[in-house]
């Protein structure tokens, strides 16, 4: 195995392990911290795929901003085991059925995936800032602008909802 394969397996192991801890940890703070480790492992995968820009933005946006807000809220609420709300029995049953259906769908869609041949890397600089900028502001300009308007409207909505009680 080459060194990048070793790194791949190591990162995958870390990502899966920390993702499992996110789900199984009793303390929500541990869940959040392990989710951050998962994000780092995935950013490492982006680096292996030569997508440096994506890796950096992934760290800045998810690990650096969104997870800080998660941690912030959980620390403020000071959640612990005693105050954790207990769901009703039938809600748990519905959740199990829904998750089982989702798993079936995923298995169904992945069936036959091993026959597919991954396309070779066309361009070695595929993840550089210059290339992504060219694509985003050239070929994909309209979707890019539309998605920014979507984000703006979400922001305005959030501000409106939080200000509603003040008036």
């Amino acid at each position: 195995m080459s060194i990048s394969q070793y790194i791949f397996w190591f990162l995958s192991f870390v990502a899966v392990l920390s993702a499992l801890i996110v789900v199984f940890a009793k303390n929500p703070i541990y869940s959040v911290l392990n989710l951050i480790i998962t994000f780092f492992a995935i950013a490492g995968h982006y680096f292996l795929l030569n997508a440096q820009f994506l890796a950096a933005v992934h760290i800045i946006v998810y690990a650096g901003a969104i997870m800080v807000l998660f941690l912030y809220v959980i620390m403020m609420l000071n959640l612990n085991k005693e105050t954790e709300p207990h769901k009703k029995q039938y809600v748990k049953l519905v959740a199990v059925v829904a998750a089982g259906l989702l798993m079936l769908t995923i298995i169904g869609s992945l069936k036959g995936a091993e026959a597919m041949v991954p396309a070779g890397i066309v361009n070695n600089n595929i993840g550089t800032v210059e290339l992504i900028g060219d694509k985003l502001f050239g070929e994909f300009l309209l979707p890019f602008e539309v998605s920014s308007i979507l984000l703006l409207s979400a922001m305005v909505g959030a501000v409106y909802l939080s200000k509603k009680e003040l008036h």
């Binding site: 820009f53 950096a56 800045i60 800080v68 941690l71 800032v129």
Partner: peptide
């Protein structure tokens, strides 16, 4: 790094965890 500024930014945004985790 050709993403040097982004790297700086990413590391700086990690710095807040030291304070948050310690404080909590």
């Amino acid at each position: 790094l050709n993403i040097g500024i982004l790297y700086l930014f990413g590391v700086v945004s990690m710095g807040v965890y030291g304070i948050m985790i310690g404080g909590w």
